[in-house]
Each structure stands twice: as C-alpha cells, then as structure tokens.
C-alpha cells in the first residue's frame, strides 16, 4: 500500500527487514531429507524380502512353468467370466433396487429394503453355501406343466457362484447407486419434469448419467474386489484360478510357487482394471470436472 514510505525507512538496506537488492538472488526449493531417508530404509527392506524369496525354498522355474499352464489359464478364464457376469448382475440389481428404495411406492420400497438388509446382513460364504445346497429346500424347480428340472442339475457351481456373488453385490451396489442419485441436484429433476419427462425417463436420461460420476469410483473398487472374491467360490468347487492352483499343488506339493502364480495373475487383472477405471472416470466427468467457474450467487464486490 504505502511502499514508498516502507522503502524510505530502510536506510540504505542495512537495517530492518527491507532490502530490495536481494530480489535477484536464486530461489532454492526446500530440501526433503526425510524422504531420502525413508526411501533408503524401504529399499533395504525390499532387498531383504527379495533376498528371502530368492534364497528360500522356491523353485522359480516351477513358477515360470505353471504361470501359463493350461489349467491355470482356464481357471483365469473362469475368474474373468465370473467377475464380469457377477458384476453385471450386481450392477443391474443395484440400479433396480436403488430405484425401488427411492420409489414412492411403499411395496417396492419395502421389498428393496428387505433385500438390502438380508444380503448385506449375512456373510457371503454362507450365502454361497445356501445357494449351492438349495436343493435341500427346493428339490425341484420350474413351472408345473411347462418345464421342470431337478435343482441339483440347475444349481451347478457356476450358477451358485453367480447368484451368490451377483445378488450379494447388488445389495452393496444399490447403496452406491442410491448415494449417486442423491448427489444430483433436485433442480435437475424439476427441469426434466418441466420438459415433460416421466419419472423413469428422467432417471435414465438425466439423473443416472450425472450420478455415474459419483458411482464409478466405488463400483470400480467393487469390480476389483469382485475379482478376488471369486476365489471364495473355490469352496463349492468352482474352477477359478486359486481352486485350480490348489488342485495342482495338492498333487505336486509346490505350494508357494503356485500361490505366486495365482497372485501374479490377480495383480495383472487388477492393474488392467485400475487403468480402465481411470479412463471411465474421465469419460463421465464431462461437463462437471472442468476447472471453470461454478454458477454462484452474485458475489459481493469488495
């Protein structure tokens, strides 16, 4: 404000805080010594672990040999197929039940609340076992006269796993979708109504596309978690990666080697999915993540 008086009071630049002659000096960024120390410690720890694995009772040629073994690859295929199918079922149910929970219809709302309560309230492993053993409750399935089948024929490990994972996932995804829908401004619904949209058209065209921005990150997280959850289905004999790896090491006793093979494949799938998630998020951020001025109430001038 009154820089002239400030400069005049410094008396030739020797006393006080003001010395304009230092303006040409080079700026040196702050040094982060702590980071260097931490990095060195971490590298040492990593080297120790690598050394342990390298010198341990691990036959790396076995790892290499089984990494692309036919049984492992087919297990991997099953893991991927199951992830895709269960997640698709989970998202479809999640959207459906989220809409039902928010519906003004008390019957739909009640059904959805019960669904979410039941499937979030019991362990996934238990649900898988129930599906797999459903023949004990319903020995036969079908519409009498039209078609009928024995439940044990229908409820294969694949079907039981798909239902178990997908329906359980739906209960969680419903909550994610619901929070996504709630994140969209109520004015959007009013504007959609004002141009004559019905409730469902508004959801499909206006609300869900905008809710996606909030929904995608947690759902991406859930897809990644689903890849690994499929391994739980090994208990009911679904032939995914881990199950097939176990089958092999029961025969050849190369336990750690085959677990490393499985871990390697899981990490690879998850890495690819993380990259895909990044691009999806960018796509659905359109129109909103731009660093432009937000619409605001008139700002008061100072």
């Amino acid at each position: 404000m009154n820089s002239t008086s400030a400069f005049s009071s410094m008396g030739g630049g020797k006393t006080g805080g003001f010395d304009p002659s230092i303006a040409h000096l080079t700026h040196v960024p702050r040094r982060h010594y702590g980071r260097w120390v931490a990095s060195a410690l971490l590298l040492a720890a990593l080297a120790y672990v690598i050394k342990a694995f390298a010198e341990g009772q691990i036959d790396w040629t076995v790892v290499g040999q089984f990494f692309t073994a036919q049984s492992i690859i087919s297990g991997l295929g099953n893991t991927i197929i199951m992830t895709v199918c269960a997640m698709a079922l989970g998202i479809a149910l999640g959207v459906l039940f989220a809409i039902m929970v928010m519906s003004p219809n008390p019957v739909l709302k009640g059904v959805a609340i019960f669904y979410i309560w039941f499937f979030r309230g019991t362990p996934l492993l238990l649900q898988l076992l129930i599906w797999f053993n459903l023949a004990l409750v319903f020995p036969r399935i079908g519409i009498p006269g039209l078609f009928e089948a024995r439940m044990v024929d229908v409820m294969t490990p694949f079907v039981a796993t798909l239902l178990g994972l997908g329906i359980n996932q739906g209960a969680y995804t419903a909550e994610v979708v619901r929070s996504g829908i709630l994140s969209v401004d109520a004015g959007q619904t009013e504007a959609a109504k004002a141009i004559g949209m019905t409730r469902l058209t508004t959801l499909r065209r206006i609300i869900l596309p905008q809710a996606m921005r909030v929904i995608i990150p947690p759902v991406g997280n859930e897809v990644i978690s689903m890849v690994k959850l499929t391994s739980i289905a090994s208990v009911i004999g679904f032939a995914e990666v881990l199950r097939n790896a176990q089958t092999i090491y029961f025969a050849n006793a190369r336990v750690i080697e085959l677990l490393i093979v499985s871990a390697g494949w899981y990490l690879m799938i998850v890495t690819i999915l993380s990259i895909a998630q990044h691009f999806l998020e960018r796509h659905f951020a359109k129109g909103s993540s731009r660093r432009s001025r937000r619409v605001a109430r008139p700002a008061l001038e100072g």
Binding site: G187, Q188, E190, A191, K193, A194, G196, Q210, S288
Partner: peptide
C-alpha cells in the same frame, strides 16, 4: 407429464442438464 407440455418453465437456478 403430458399436461406439462403445455407450459415451459424457466428456473431461478437455470437447472440446465449439467452433462
């Protein structure tokens, strides 16, 4: 929804579809 087609509405907060 059909009856609303007779009138157009302009809101205080614009309410343009953000996406």
């Amino acid at each position: 929804a059909r009856q609303r087609l007779t009138s157009g509405m302009v809101f205080q907060r614009f309410n343009l579809f953000q996406h």
